[in-house]
Each structure stands twice: as structure tokens, then as C-alpha cells.
């Protein structure tokens, strides 16, 4: 493989914890992920499993303390965790940018849309005010905001949720990032708007040749957008697979649960749905269960699941599962 086709982002042994008054919260606990150029990697898992913390750790947007980030985050060969403040600021919004879940609160209410986009451009590109503003209007046009010229002079409260998220996308893409971290970009929107935004993102991703880490609860979106999927549970990766294989042949009982393929009375998986409810609750991050973290909810536990953490089993390229069922199969 040539250098160019190697992974754009390699996360190795990422560990993010929060030092709180109640104790240490291991929000992300030893995560290994690769993101390739031009691909969309889906990151799924129940609420609280550490998806947002992962994304925020990449850009080091978590205040430290209380957060503490360890491991390696190699972006184009540089470890982002080794950069100084100025170094990581040059990456933020430049090579890596982020879209957040809440369009209603993630734009600044007292600055115009145009100002918020063009300040990013002025920060990263050597542009004058006028040039940045012109580019900003172009970006708004690109994300299909009607009347981009007049919209750029408006404040966020005049825009609907969908329009704001388009503006966020325009802002995130304005400096031609190589990687876009999209943290549930459509969760807060109406279903019809969701589809429009997703189509837009898919198109712009091609146009800008960017990679996307797409965090979502929505398996329909994953099926449509992602080429590969990483499933997280309680701060750890439990399964990684190309998207088709994941839907066809989920190996981890947790993934099977999410996909609803475990027979449960009165429920059927019919594709393009949100994650299914799995009986039981996510473990308290302050008191993780011994052994496999999923064992209290797993329908197929064995004695060893309560004693030891399962190893990560490599089934094929980019096909990994962390489960004793697979590990034992291998040993047989």
C-alpha cells in the first residue's frame, strides 16, 4: 500500500477518563480505530458508550482536567496528542472539523451566520474579510441555503433547525478538511429534513474528498452512508465490520441485540430503523462489571465472561469482534 492510501486517522489505545468527585469515569477505554481516506466510518452504540467523547478527544476539545486523554491519535502521521496548543488549533477547523448534534445551540446566537463561517476561513486561509465573506456565501450556496447572500447577514435564530445544520456543514467544510467528525448531525431534526441533510453530506463528501466519522443511533443512516462500522459498548469497541457484513452477520451479542436479530417476542428487525432496545441498562461507568462489560445483559454468557475481559479477535481485514464466543471458536 502506498503512503497515500494508508489510513488518514489511526487511533491506538485511546483512553479518555474524567476525574470527577464521585470517582474516575473511564469514558473511552482502549479504543483502536482506523479511518481511511475518502471513507465514511460509522460509529454506533447506545447513549453514554463514549461516541462523543471519542470525537471530542480527537480534536482535544475536552477540558483537561477533568478529562485526561491517553494513547495515540495519528493524523496523517502526526500524533495529535503530542501537538502543542497552537498546533492542535491549526488542525481544528482546518484539516479536521466537527459538526455537532444540536443545531439550535451550537451556533453562536449573537454573531451572524456569515461572521461565524468567515472567521473560520480567516483563521485558516490567508484571506481578507471580503474574500472570506465571498467564500462563505459560496459555501452557503453549496449547502443549498436559499438566498445565501442575505442569509449570511442573518443571525442563527432566524434559521430553522435544518437550515442551521446546513450552515454548520458549510462552516465545517469551508476550509476543505480532510476529516469531518459528525456527531449525530441529524438526530435533532425532523425525519424528512434528516434525509435531505444526509444526502447533502454524502454529496459534499465526494466533492470535497473528505473522510467522515459518522456518529449516529440510526442504523438506516449507517446502512446508507457508511462503508464500515465500529460498534462501541461502555467505552470499548465490541465489533468492527464492513457495513454489509455487519447487517448480514453480526457476531457480538450486543450488535445482534442492536440489530434486533435476537428473537424477542413482539419485535422484528426490518431494516432502516433506529437501534433496538436491549433489555437491561448500560453499566454505571464508575462500577464497570468484571470480565466482559456486556455480561449483565448478554443472553449468551459463559462463566469466563464474568471473570476475564474478552480478547479482540481478528476475523478478517477490518473485521474484529471482542467476545468470548468468537475467541473460543478460534481456540477449538
Amino acid at each position: 500500500m502506498s503512503e497515500q492510501s494508508g489510513p488518514l486517522l489511526t487511533i491506538r489505545g485511546l483512553r479518555t477518563r474524567f476525574h470527577t468527585y464521585e470517582g474516575v469515569v473511564n469514558a473511552v477505554d482502549g479504543l483502536d480505530i482506523e479511518v481511511f481516506r475518502g471513507e465514511t466510518l460509522g460509529l454506533v452504540g447506545e447513549s453514554g458508550c463514549g461516541k462523543s467523547v471519542t470525537a471530542l478527544s480527537i480534536l482535544r476539545l475536552l477540558p483537561c482536567p477533568p478529562a485526561e486523554i491517553q494513547g495515540q491519535i495519528l493524523f496523517d502521521g502526526t500524533n495529535l496528542l503530542d501537538l502543542d496548543r497552537e498546533g492542535i488549533r491549526n488542525i481544528r477547523g482546518g484539516d479536521i472539523s466537527m459538526i455537532f448534534q444540536e443545531p439550535m445551540t451550537s451556533l453562536n446566537p449573537v454573531l451572524t451566520i456569515g461572521e461565524q463561517i468567515s472567521e473560520t476561513l480567516r483563521r485558516h486561509k490567508d484571506m481578507t474579510r471580503r474574500e472570506a465573506w465571498r467564500r462563505c456565501v459560496e459555501m452557503l450556496q453549496l449547502v443549498q441555503i436559499p438566498g445565501p447572500k442575505s442569509r449570511s447577514r442573518e443571525y442563527p435564530h432566524k434559521l430553522s433547525g435544518g437550515m442551521r445544520q446546513r450552515a454548520m456543514i458549510a462552516m465545517a467544510l469551508s476550509c476543505n478538511p480532510k476529516l469531518l467528525l459528525a456527531d449525530e448531525p441529524t438526530t435533532a431534526l425532523d425525519v424528512t429534513i434528516q434525509a435531505q441533510i444526509m444526502t447533502l453530506m454524502a454529496r459534499l463528501k465526494e466533492e470535497f474528498e473528505a473522510s467522515i466519522v459518522l456518529i449516529t443511533h440510526d442504523l438506516g443512516i449507517i446502512a446508507e452512508m457508511a462503508s464500515r462500522v465500529v460498534v462501541m459498548y461502555a467505552g470499548k469497541m465490541v465489533e468492527e465490520a464492513p457495513v454489509k457484513e455487519l447487517f448480514k452477520d453480526p457476531r457480538h451479542p450486543y450488535t445482534q441485540g442492536l440489530l434486533g436479530s435476537i428473537p424477542v417476542i413482539g419485535r422484528k428487525f426490518d431494516g432502516g430503523q433506529r437501534l433496538q432496545e436491549i433489555p437491561g441498562i448500560v453499566p454505571n461507568p464508575l462500577e464497570m462489571p468484571l470480565g466482559c462489560r456486556f455480561n449483565p445483559r448478554c443472553p449468551r454468557t459463559m462463566p469466563i465472561c464474568h471473570q476475564q475481559e474478552p480478547p479482540v479477535v481478528r476475523l478478517a481485514d477490518h473485521r474484529r469482534v471482542s467476545c468470548w464466543l468468537e475467541a473460543n471458536k478460534r481456540d477449538d
Binding site: L61, R89, S97
Partner: peptide, 9 residues
């Protein structure tokens, strides 16, 4: 957080 994510000082 958005402002920080844009790399602003």
C-alpha cells in the same frame, strides 16, 4: 465548543 472546534484563539 463550536468556536474552539474551529481553531480560534
Amino acid at each position: 465548543t463550536t468556536a474552539r472546534s474551529k481553531g480560534l484563539q
